[in-house]
């Protein structure tokens, strides 16, 4: 099984890219700083989409409730519309029947988008090595952070969110790496032409 191709565009038209670049091909100061600023804003105001299907969704509820309160990390705006959210938290078992729905939701999310896979079932299928269960959502969509546990404790999920925030800060998420690779390819292509 192959993971699906991600349609990540290098961002902006070629003219804009050319204007933002110095003659030697490196990015101008302003845009890199802008990216860093944007990433800071993004990582501190994640809008999760809770793709809760099973037991982990109940623990996700615990994380949202008063005892743990995910809003302390800037991620309280739970949106049930993929168009309005940038963090997909897959909490619970994904079955073969549900997989097309998951892929559709992932594709509907606007970029940048990040994925946390919460719990054993979403990460690997857990102990359901069975005829109707997806053996890890990374069969279908790329995952940034895996949180083990069945279900994970609320602290583990909070740590997962914090870990993701750090990754966004360092540019290590799947989306950012793809974007960087696409930019590098575009730059290499432009240099080659010149």
């Amino acid at each position: 099984m192959t993971s699906r191709d991600l349609s990540i565009s290098p961002g902006g038209g070629s003219e804009e890219r050319a204007a933002a670049r110095r003659p030697d091909g490196s990015q101008v100061f302003l845009t890199t700083k802008l990216d860093a600023l944007l990433d800071m804003a993004r990582r501190n105001s994640l809008w999760p989409f809770p793709f809760g299907t099973a037991c982990c969704a109940i623990e996700f509820m615990s994380v949202m409730m008063s005892h743990y309160d995910l809003s302390r990390f800037g991620a309280e705006v739970v949106r049930f519309s993929p168009r309005q959210s940038d963090l997909l938290i897959v909490a619970g078992t994904v079955t073969d029947k549900m997989a097309p729905v998951l892929v559709r939701i992932y594709e509907q999310m606007a970029e940048p988008k990040y994925v946390i896979s919460m719990g054993a079932c979403a990460c690997t299928g857990g102990f359901y090595r069975a005829y109707h269960v997806v053996q890890g959502i990374d069969e279908f969509i790329p995952v940034d952070v895996y949180v083990p546990g069945c279900p994970p404790t609320p602290e583990a999920l909070l740590k997962g969110v914090v870990h993701l925030q750090e990754m966004i800060g360092k540019g290590e998420t799947h989306y950012q790496r793809q974007l960087a690779a696409a930019r590098a390819a575009a730059r290499g292509g432009a240099d080659g032409n010149a």
């Binding site: 099973a54 619970g92 078992t93 079955t95 029947k97 079932c121 102990f127 359901y128 005829y131």
Partner: peptide
């Protein structure tokens, strides 16, 4: 229904 059919009985 069946979106969470985890095959309990087979398992």
């Amino acid at each position: 229904i069946g979106y969470l059919h985890r095959c309990f009985e087979k398992m």
